[in-house]
Amino acid sequence: MTTNAIAAKGWRILTTLLLALYTIVVVYPLVWTVYSSFKTTEEFYASPFALPQGLSLDNYVNALARSRMAEYFVNSVVVTVLALILCNAAGFAAAYVMTRYRFRFLAVIKRFYIAGLFFPAAFSIVPLFMLLNQMHLLDSIAGLSIVYAVSAIPFTIYLLSGFLASIPKDYEESATIDGCSLFGVLIRIIAPMAKPGIITITIFNVMGFWNEYIYALSFISSEGKRTLTLGLAYLMEVQRYATDWGALFAGLVLVMVPTLLIYALLQNRITAGLNMGGLKG
């Protein structure tokens, strides 16, 4: 072999090694959590790398019984769905009008939404807390849904505008000539054509709402209204003192599995959508 070929081979081995190493860094903690969730308390104090003796489901029973996980799951679903409907409907209508029509204040409104993309959410959490309190929307699933929806509106409008701008205007024009009302055009012509964009933003919003923690922590106080992430954080706090580690690992797996399944199904769309987000420099 020539020196060049040896260098190329060494380079390739190094690359593969590096990639394999990082794969372990990503995958092993996840796998470890899953098999540890079947361990008994005694096994926890033995080697952490060891596999559990059997596949006991006690930890899962404990996690579900002690922390009302099932309730939190339902709350998360409700909040996500409500926020999604509100955000997508309002965002889609606004994005359409803003890309297709010229009207007064359009430039100002656009600028507000673009600024909204860069607001650090944490900054206005205290005034938002007081506002919700005045509106009797504190500690309420509806209130939390509204906050989630609004937090995603700038990005929803931004992403959908980019998508809608790429749809040719001819379809709407001929539909209007055929006597279709403007709302009719929006619902029957544009919405179906914008489907890929709507699906992408839906995936983004669902992941964002499902995983959100700061707002839920600040605005939800009663146990029965906790979302899944909030429930998990509390479970962690409770178990820290009770040292029932198995239940905590089981709780973690229960929260992780739905995300994993959705990711496995939609992985391509998620990464493609990331680039559709308009990060083209």
Binding site: A90, A94, V97, F103, I109, L128, S151, I153, L186
Partner: peptide, 14 residues
């Protein structure tokens, strides 16, 4: 009708 809902929500809560 299309602009206001998003705008009101955004103005009030953001």
């Amino acid at each position: 009708a299309c602009t206001l809902p998003a705008l009101i929500l955004f103005a009030v809560f953001a």
